[in-house]
Design a protein around this nucleic acid. Structure first.
Lengths: 258, 258
DNA sequence: AGCCAGCAGTGGCTTAAGCCAGTTGTACGC
DNA sequence: GCGTACAACTGGCTTAAGCCACTGCTGGCT
């Protein structure tokens, strides 16, 4: 019943028909779908219902709806892949850039970094746990990164560093020079990054992220919680970053242990 | 204007108020929100508008709506993490299971495998490219996996193997015995998995995936394209799997190369 | 005690109508 | 020739009303 009835629902029927037309390339990427009023007339339903159908396609990421213009079949955008060499010390040495910024460069894109917040803050519990910091005891420095590709914001992130490491001039210097020299400071203090742990999930964006990343409706974000680990197994840096899932991917080259 | 006006829209106003109440824990995880009719009366709007507001929260993954019962603040479900030891040869040797199945066991969950399709098929272009197979030349065997945790479907996937490897009895045997011995066959033919490449992205589920994985509205899926690479750098197996993003995460332990 | 029918409350979906706002082409006036 | 105002399109959002299906409780019957 459920299945059969679902097929009968006008909004689903219209959505299905449009979806099929897109799959069969009757409507091709970039094409405009019939207007809501057209669809309503054609399927003898209320405009609301036709609108609902288009809303479903939008939620699936199949179409882009533009106020005053219409609903357009979304082009298959080639994804910007974040490469597996993101955490190579060689890249870091040669470029002097922090990993994400190096990545942005490697992609041949312009990158900018904003440092709007520097100071001692209380880290979220999951970050505190990964840094082995008693949550209410030691504070952490946060640095906010914005990455852009051709002026489109691609990624926003925040790095948490124990205050002991941040103290001194590292962050202030970095903010001034924009050289991303934070890893130099890490090495001064005896932390050489040896392993990284990355925990990955995806979710729908929060409203602020929708704005910051200019995310169209229906597009999820990938969230990565990155932990940098030094030669003695100590976690000394945690970065949480969020990126649009439709323009980005993660690409890992994993050794298989014996 | 945009910002101010957006605040004025009744549906946004209601959604904002509810979102704030949830953040302030006036409504806690598991609590039921006021009914659509209640909200409409309280905010002096039509029921449709209150419904729209709840729809927004649902799309953000904040609430679960249950027919006949109400809208409930979603509990923070502890994610089932797919561990970093997924591709250890040791795991494979000791358990005799294929990696994903080993993982499902490691999590202490029941796992089942369906093998509804076995045969020569034409692989999608991206798979053909990763197996270095001329797309229209060599066919590929597909195996469909379903993984369950406590009877809830968690992951669906399909593995593509060049016909030369699949030929013989491997897949049929596996289907019969359920022992996941496919890696034994790989080794017979001189392919020992040494590296894996994983390409990760996220998107909204397709309708069939919504059904297969019982995905609530507003929850994205994580899609992984896994390529197994042998000791000579040859790709010999590609698996594409999809999982609910709200119950699962990927967890990588990455060596940082020098 | 146990079952079951009915009722009240919930969300699911639709219709019909209207007003607002962004977009684009055109006809008119200078 | 140019520009401006308008008309005719587009989607955005809301109201008001109704019917359906699912849920859970309650009270009455066996």
């Amino acid at each position: 019943m459920n299945q059969a009835e679902r097929e009968m629902l006008p909004s689903r029927r219209i959505a299905d028909a449009l979806r099929r037309s897109i799959a069969e390339r009757t409507f091709r990427p970039g094409d405009r779908l019939p207007s809501e009023r057209d669809l309503a007339a054609r399927y003898r339903t209320a405009r609301n219902t036709a609108r609902e159908a288009i809303g479903l396609l939008q939620a699936e990421g199949l179409v882009d709806v533009r106020h005053g213009k219409g609903a357009f079949v979304r082009r298959q955008t080639p994804m910007i892949r974040l490469g597996a060499d993101r955490y190579s010390n060689r890249v870091r040495r040669e470029t002097g850039l922090s990993p994400f910024r190096a990545e942005a460069q490697r992609q041949g894109k312009t990158a900018r970094v904003d440092v709007p917040e520097i100071g001692r803050i209380k880290p979220p519990t999951d970050v505190a746990a990964r840094l082995n910091v008693p949550e209410d005891d030691l504070s952490v420095v946060a640095r906010v990164n914005h990455y852009f590709a051709d002026d489109d914001p691609v990624q926003i992130g925040i790095t948490y560093i124990p205050w002991a490491i941040a103290e001194g001039s590292v962050l202030a210097t970095e903010a001034k020079t924009g050289t991303g020299s934070i890893y130099a400071r890490f090495e001064e203090l005896g932390h050489r990054i040896t392993r990284a742990r990355e925990e990955i999930t995806a979710r729908m964006p929060r409203p602020d992220e929708t704005v910051a990343l200019a995310i169209p409706p229906g597009v999820p974000v990938v969230e990565v919680l990155h932990t940098g680990i030094d030669q003695e197994g100590r976690a000394f840096e945690v970065t949480r970053f969020v990126m649009r899932a439709d323009l980005n991917g993660l690409d890992y080259d994993l050794p298989v242990e014996d």
